[in-house]
Design a protein around this nucleic acid. Structure first.
Lengths: 310, 310
DNA sequence: CCTGGCATG
DNA sequence: CATGGCAGG
């Protein structure tokens, strides 16, 4: 029992756009009134070598599958109608999945991974129109495979890997773990790549270069834009993989896939490009297009779609 | 990471209407389709001795003041316009109170009690149009005064005590504590009553007799209708106090002030009378009316109002 | 079935 | 400022 006065807590993070810790209070000017939007161009269904795309893959960090279903995320999916739908941050044990998604006839082959320990944390899913040859969970390393972060599906001509990469956390409390993850995940992908080329998609929880987020200056010490995480992604690409969006649109600014719910970031397009399609180099000739579907609502991330001939 | 099938958890508590544990699966027939409602009769503003009511007091367990404010509970209060408004289960530290209530000009004298330890738990409030002579918190016993459960206001001719009595909990885990509370609280009221007569109001967390809840049979082992709690209330009345509603309407059935949110209890009027105005016997001649405002929404309890000449 | 907190992002 | 889980009712 106590007596006090009015609140005035929050309002600490002003010029910070992840929701991460350590706000920098140094910037003076506000964001411009008119947001600089990225207009996703019309889909290109033909690749350089002239082949037509025969596969469409969509990846979406749904930030809670149950809430996302309630916000009609599945209507968008039906409209987009990809051959494979990869979801991250489902935050849902398999027994609690909404019937609206488990009973979806368009995707008879559904695969779910969720956190062993923490309920409602992490979790990824893959829904397929055609049945993969084989599906596996995790990357084969005990320490990384308890949080439902990776599903790998083998298709006739490629592997499809979807992942929700561990966030380094506020105050970078989990950056050390992330660095271990990056090393081991890269090793896992390189191993796979020896067998068949692969498509990696999902929330990689890193904006690679300054062009990949609105406020690079203010975020160098924040989760998702530390030099450790950025170098981790660089090393991945140096292992023989390509960031398909940046390959196609090397100069495109203001193209983001994530906006924190805080501070009306999305309406101002103060965002980050955290979601990717990363391809084995040998798949590059078949790359048709990589789309950022930033009009789709229902999460703090938007979906991305890949058109490819495989 | 695990794989399973569809959910079928809940649906355990069927014929239980507190949300308490130990559901009895024995009843066969369902509740009638047409709910038996209690129609609160028109207010009686004149008491037996012919005096006009000069005081109106309203008591409401709001089940979270912030949510209740958002659901426009204050609009109802402005309409009812009591001289004193007593609230229980505010679940809100004083520093987090909505401005809509702290700045309410109709009630310049506002008193708040909240839990010392558990944030967002328990808590009562008293809002007055006229300033009380003195206001105190708790009952003067350390062990009971940490959860913000009692405010006592001294007025010229009476004390007004509002309380949120400890719930005995699912599985009656806190029944022993409750019994201690009942003894000590009764002693506190008896002490006060020596000085001046008193009005006690609030959520007493007990349905006194079978008439005071829809399903007496099924709830004898549940919090709010155990013999211990019922006898505690009987002993309070035997200490020289009167349940004003039952005094006025001794045979009135289906008159409840609480309905669990579960199982659509309110629409079926499967409820409990847990909220009371209890009066020192010497105030009985001034008792005009005790109203159950069961049309007011915004909580799992409804407000009750007392008209009295003091 | 609701509340308010909490951890997490 | 969202999510989902939790204790409490």
């Amino acid at each position: 029992m106590k007596r006090g006065k009015k609140t005035e807590d929050a309002a600490a993070d002003e010029e910070n756009d992840t929701g991460s810790a350590s706000a920098k209070k140094t910037k003076k000017a506000k964001e411009p009134e008119a947001p600089i939007l990225y207009e996703d161009p019309p889909d290109k269904m033909t690749c350089k070598d002239g082949r037509e795309a025969n596969m469409k893959i969509t990846s979406w960090n749904v930030d809670g599958l149950r809430a996302w279903v309630k916000k009609n995320g599945l209507d968008w999916v039906r409209e987009e109608s990809p051959d494979v739908l990869c979801l991250q941050e489902t935050k849902c044990a398999e027994k609690s999945l909404p019937a609206a998604i488990t009973s979806m006839p368009e995707y008879p082959y559904k695969y779910w991974a969720s956190s062993d320990e923490k309920e409602g944390y992490s979790g990824v899913a893959m829904l397929c129109k055609t049945e993969p040859i084989k599906v596996t969970y995790g990357i084969g390393k005990e320490e990384h495979d308890k949080e439902g972060r990776v599903i790998t599906a083998e298709f006739p001509t490629f592997y499809l890997v979807t992942t929700y990469v561990p966030n380094s956390g506020r105050g970078l409390v989990r950056l050390d773990y992330r660095k271990t993850w990056d090393v081991d995940f890269r090793a896992y992908l390189s191993e796979l790549d020896i067998q068949k080329p692969l498509v990696l998609c999902g929330d990689l929880n890193v904006a690679h270069q300054e062009i990949d987020l609105k406020n690079p200056k203010g975020n160098k010490k924040n989760a998702g834009f530390t030099s450790d995480e950025r170098e981790g992604f660089t090393q991945l690409l140096e292992s023989g993989f390509t960031d398909s969006f940046r390959e196609l649109y090397p100069e495109q600014t203001n193209a983001y896939t994530f906006w924190t719910y805080m501070m009306n970031s999305r309406s101002k397009n103060v965002g980050w490009r955290l979601d990717y399609f990363v391809l084995s180099s040998s798949l590059l000739p078949g790359l048709c297009d990589c789309k950022i579907r930033n009009k789709a609502l229902g999460s703090d991330h938007c979906p991305i779609s890949l058109h490819i001939a495989v």
